[in-house]
Design a protein around this nucleic acid. Structure first.
Lengths: 249, 249
DNA sequence: CGTCCCTTTGAGATAGGTCAAATTCCGTGG
DNA sequence: CCACGGAATTTGACCTATCTCAAAGGGACG
């Protein structure tokens, strides 16, 4: 916050590509063996010295942190293809817990930095990742600052949907791997509130549920409207207004 | 959030040093000429192509972003010595606005990256900065998630105080350069709520005001208590519990 | 001395939290 | 294939922190 140099970060490369194999930071992991973690197990512990970075091959994880008063903060979720634990100094700030059974590839920082010496491109990827995370974090912050409970939930569902489902349209099914509690702890709400928000979406015919974890989009436009201002854009992501337009204010 | 690789970031180097001249990322700027910006002027615009990074030599700036509905989000504040605009691709995500008159040094990315080629140390500093910002952002998020209005305000005051005043104790004076509106937009509250929280701190003898911008700490322990769980630590910042202790839960 | 802007205070409205209970889901065993 | 039990989800009733709207100080500056 009032810490040094908070801002002025760039937007992420226009169309964020992040398939498991193809693009940037994942590439480094492809030749590592995969480890398995059962649902509920912890991949890395908050507070432990950080030695490795990870790539999630399959399944989903949550990144969380427990406060002294027992409150749990979930900073985010990781899905197949995601890279995490990029911090190559000191300690992990969050635990990564398997939500479902999952498989991860592990790469030690030693190896990672060794790699970087050969090709500075790899190092740039790390930096790139950090920037992307920072950007994401900023959106998250925005979410917390100015969105109502309903907006947060709608926004969350859309984002998860897009992450899993590339192209959302009416009829798209979204699978929410995480329990309501996790969503609540992520959005800074209570389980009850999350439920009620979802119920409202259902009641208004914006989406349909088959079981708590599977939902189908019925009216994607309504859904978008309910995300509040900072719209969840389609696949082609435009910067919105030209900067000049905003200077007036 | 549910974006790739959200977390597992390390904690910042134990004692964060950031005097204007001495430490890391500032060094690169020392030989650049200083430009002046009057209070209210904008150093860089949200949405503009990002070309330069900046170091604030004197004064304070806010990093902000205006949403379509007119809501303003303040991501943070910068004080003398802080570096910002580190994002060296695409566009600035936030505007940096001078709160008071201030002076900044500017360094083009071209020059910055050129520097990096000679000494990878400089490049590492940038990465380091990014990580630090990410860490800060996470604290910010935590703040938004689980703290009450009173806690947020107390926490905010303490943080600004520490940023400016190295060692806070009873009798320390804190100068809040930014108006209440800025604090509100930063903490996700309304001006009125911020006022009331401050009034309460005053009423309870925890701090004293001389004019809206100057406050003196009367009871620093009470102040700390009011920050809620994620304590604002003293100058020597310990990681808290050993990691092992937390594994129980 | 008046105006404008920022801050503070007051009174009422409301979104979301809390506590408690009903319901659904889903794995396990008969 | 069906019944059972614990966990997760959903719903309800009520309560409180924070927002909203409105108005009253206070300082700086012309």
């Amino acid at each position: 916050m009032y810490t040094s140099s908070q801002e002025c970060l760039r937007e992420p490369p226009s169309a964020p590509k992040r398939d498991a194999s193809t693009s940037s930071p994942g590439a480094v992991f492809t030749h590592r063996p995969a480890e398995s973690f059962a649902a509920g197990r912890v991949v890395c512990w908050e507070g432990d010295p950080s030695r490795d970075a990870f790539q999630l091959v399959e399944g989903s994880v949550r990144f969380c942190r427990v406060q002294i008063d027992g409150h749990r903060m979930i900073a985010g979720f990781g899905f197949a293809g995601d890279v995490f634990g990029l911090s190559y100094m000191e300690r992990y700030i969050f635990s990564a817990e398997a939500i479902t059974d999952c498989r991860v590839r592990r790469l030690s920082y030693a190896r990672l930095t060794a790699l970087s010496d050969n090709s500075s491109a790899d190092y740039a990827q790390i930096t790139e990742q950090l920037r992307q995370q920072l950007h994401e974090m900023q959106n998250q912050l925005l979410l917390m600052l100015h969105k109502s409970a309903d907006e947060r939930v709608a926004y969350f569902i859309m984002r998860v949907g897009q992450r899993l489902n590339r192209e959302l349209r009416n009829g798209s099914e979204i699978r929410l791997a995480m329990p309501r509690t996790d969503i609540a702890d992520h959005l800074g709400l209570t389980v009850e509130t999350v439920c009620r928000s979802i119920t409202r979406l259902k009641r208004d015919g914006v989406l349909a549920l088959n079981g708590p974890a599977r939902m189908t989009i019925k009216d994607i436009d309504a859904m978008r409207r309910r995300c509040g201002d900072e719209t969840v854009h389609g696949a082609d992501d435009h910067p919105g207004l030209p900067a000049a337009a905003r200077r007036a204010g």
